[in-house]
């Protein structure tokens, strides 16, 4: 009886969005009288940080600091339609809608600034700090604060924009299955290293090295949040989680966190995250949806590592000590 080590690898891809259902999201952007910007949506922030990312996307597009943008979302009386937060679609779909709306608002903003500065709008640029400058002559400038005041009280212009992003529905062809499930895919490769106690069947995940390709890390710290949490969830799925431990038998389902198991803070694998960025052709600033796929590759990587360690295949999830012991017993009797 011994503690045995093994390692396993898995590589995966993941579609962004739900093309097979049709996938629209809208956004509205407008400025306040003093040059702050409101993004209005009906998208839902589940904790992944939708509000923050939409603010950064709007800020980048208009050319102001992120803290000048406020996101008002998920009120059906004010926010235009969004399909919902699922299918790794939020950042991609809503982000594209926000970009379109913000561009339209930016154009009005530049037109008003052009009138104030008596130049052509096409000769203006933003400095990202809240000012609009004449290209090549930055001493000639106006603050966005003053532009918004002028638009509201002098020029009678609405610095606002509408955004709509729609991936039309793809209907699978009946006989061949020809379809377009997604316009862009995120990628990952995970190597997991485990120890398996062949006496108890217990698995300890020592390390997971995850490489994720996610299009573009719009906010690297928030990307890291999702990827670290996702990697944890993947390991949790691999080794612990089930509401029906003896499926298809319906008995013995957990009803609280003492029965429904997940790794706690004392059960963490040493986790490494490496991010590659291949911008998607149609994503907001190249982004893809990383939120779901980051929890997938750990499951087969752990399963393959368990085999590498003790030479038995557990093809049924989760890979519990009971299943490992039964497999080891079967192996020994063969």
């Amino acid at each position: 009886m011994a503690i045995r080590r093994g390692r396993g690898v898995a590589a995966i891809n993941y579609p962004t969005g739900m093309n097979l259902g049709g996938d629209p999201t809208q956004a509205l952007v407008h400025s306040t009288p003093t040059g702050n910007f409101m993004v209005t949506l009906s998208s839902v922030d589940l904790g992944q940080g939708m509000k923050q990312i939409m603010a950064q996307i709007c800020a980048e597009t208009i050319g102001v600091p992120t803290d000048r943008v406020v996101v008002d979302t998920a009120d059906t009386d004010t926010g235009p339609h969004c399909m919902g937060t699922f299918a790794s679609r939020g950042t991609h779909r809503a982000g594209n809608a926000v970009i379109q709306a913000a561009r339209e608002a930016r154009q009005v903003m530049l037109e008003v600034a052009a009138e104030e500065l008596e130049v052509n709008a096409s000769d203006l640029e933003t400095d990202g700090q809240g000012n609009i400058l004449v290209k090549g002559a930055p001493q000639k400038s106006i603050s966005i604060f003053d532009v918004a005041l002028s638009a509201h009280f002098k020029r009678g212009r609405s610095i606002s924009g509408r955004g709509m992003f729609l991936i039309p529905r793809s209907y699978p062809e009946k006989e061949t299955g020809a379809m377009k499930p997604s316009t862009c895919y995120a990628h990952a490769c995970t190597v997991a290293e485990v120890e398996v106690d062949d006496e108890t069947g217990e698995v300890t995940v020592l390390t997971v090295k995850n490489v994720f390709e996610i299009g573009r890390a719009l906010n690297p710290k928030m990307v890291e949040q999702q990827l670290v949490g996702g990697s944890w969830m993947g390991i949790s799925h691999a080794l612990y989680e089930t509401t029906e431990p003896y499926y298809p038998n319906r008995d013995h389902g957990g009803t609280d966190f003492n029965q429904y198991l997940m790794p706690g803070p004392g059960d963490l694998a040493q986790t490494e995250i490496i991010v590659l960025e291949r911008p998607s052709a149609d994503g907001p600033y190249g982004a893809k949806g990383p939120g779901e796929m980051c929890a997938n590759p750990q499951i087969p990587a752990v399963a393959n590592a368990v085999f590498d360690a003790v030479g038995v295949r557990i093809d049924t999830l989760p890979i519990t000590p009971e299943r490992i012991l039964r497999a080891l017993k079967a192996q020994a009797s063969n």
Binding site: K209, E213, S280
Partner: peptide, 21 residues
């Protein structure tokens, strides 16, 4: 499903995993 692959990055993920691991 008869769509040409675009924007693939699986190979690069595996190359980096090879190095990291």
């Amino acid at each position: 499903h008869r769509q040409p692959t675009e924007g693939a990055a699986l190979i690069e993920c595996m190359q980096e995993a090879s190095r990291a691991a």
